[in-house]
Amino acid sequence: MSAALLIVVAGLALLDSLNPATILGVGLILVLPSRHPVRAALAYVLGAYLTVLALGVGLYLAADAAVEVVDGGLVWVRRMAFGLAALMLLRSAIRRLRPMRRTQVVLPAWFTPWTALPLGAVVTAADLPNAFPYAIAIERLVDAGVAPSAGLAVLAGYALVYCLPCLLLLIAGAAWGDQVRHWLHKLYNRFGSAREVPRSLPAALGLGVLAAAVAGIAVTA
Score class of each variant (00 low, 15 high):
124 T>G: 05
41 A>F: 06
57 V>W: 11
35 R>T: 12
42 L>M: 09
102 R>Q: 13
31 V>G: 02
147 A>Q: 08
162 Y>C: 02
166 C>Y: 07
84 L>Y: 09
138 I>Q: 03
40 A>Q: 07
23 I>A: 14
207 L>K: 00
217 I>C: 00
52 V>H: 10
6 L>H: 13
130 N>T: 12
112 T>I: 12
46 L>C: 09
85 A>F: 03
99 P>M: 01
216 G>H: 01
166 C>Q: 15
218 A>M: 00
27 G>Q: 07
168 L>R: 04
21 A>P: 12
124 T>P: 03
197 V>D: 01
47 G>F: 07
14 L>M: 11
95 R>F: 09
106 V>T: 14
94 I>A: 11
86 A>R: 01
81 A>C: 11
122 V>R: 02
36 H>P: 06
211 A>E: 01
53 L>P: 05
78 R>C: 08
15 L>V: 15
168 L>F: 07
26 V>I: 11
87 L>T: 06
80 M>N: 09
219 V>F: 02
156 A>S: 08
112 T>C: 07
16 D>C: 10
173 G>E: 07
148 P>N: 08
5 L>M: 03
49 Y>W: 08
118 P>H: 07
111 F>R: 02
141 L>E: 04
99 P>D: 00
23 I>V: 15
202 P>G: 01
157 G>H: 08
149 S>T: 08
34 S>A: 10
84 L>D: 09
6 L>A: 15
88 M>A: 12
189 N>W: 11
146 V>N: 08
69 V>Y: 14
2 S>P: 14
91 R>I: 12
149 S>W: 14
123 V>L: 09
213 A>E: 03
99 P>S: 04
39 R>Q: 10
112 T>F: 12
105 V>K: 13
18 L>S: 09
18 L>P: 05
166 C>L: 14
56 G>T: 05
66 A>S: 13
104 Q>W: 08
216 G>W: 03
128 L>Y: 04
14 L>C: 07
156 A>M: 10
175 A>I: 13
56 G>V: 08
32 L>M: 12
221 A>L: 01
120 G>W: 08
39 R>S: 13
185 H>S: 14
77 V>S: 11
162 Y>M: 00
87 L>M: 12
188 Y>V: 04
102 R>I: 06
195 R>Y: 01
145 G>A: 07
83 G>Q: 05
171 I>F: 14
140 R>M: 14
140 R>D: 11
97 L>P: 01
4 A>Y: 06
55 L>V: 15
96 R>A: 05
165 P>E: 12
46 L>Q: 10
180 V>R: 08
32 L>C: 09
125 A>K: 02
17 S>P: 09
53 L>D: 04
142 V>H: 07
112 T>K: 00
155 L>E: 03
23 I>C: 12
207 L>M: 03
180 V>Y: 06
117 L>Q: 13
18 L>W: 13
64 D>T: 13
132 F>C: 09
124 T>C: 11
162 Y>L: 02
142 V>L: 05
126 A>I: 11
121 A>C: 04
146 V>R: 04
152 L>Q: 04
174 A>T: 02
11 G>P: 05
173 G>F: 05
87 L>K: 07
102 R>A: 10
125 A>V: 06
158 Y>V: 02
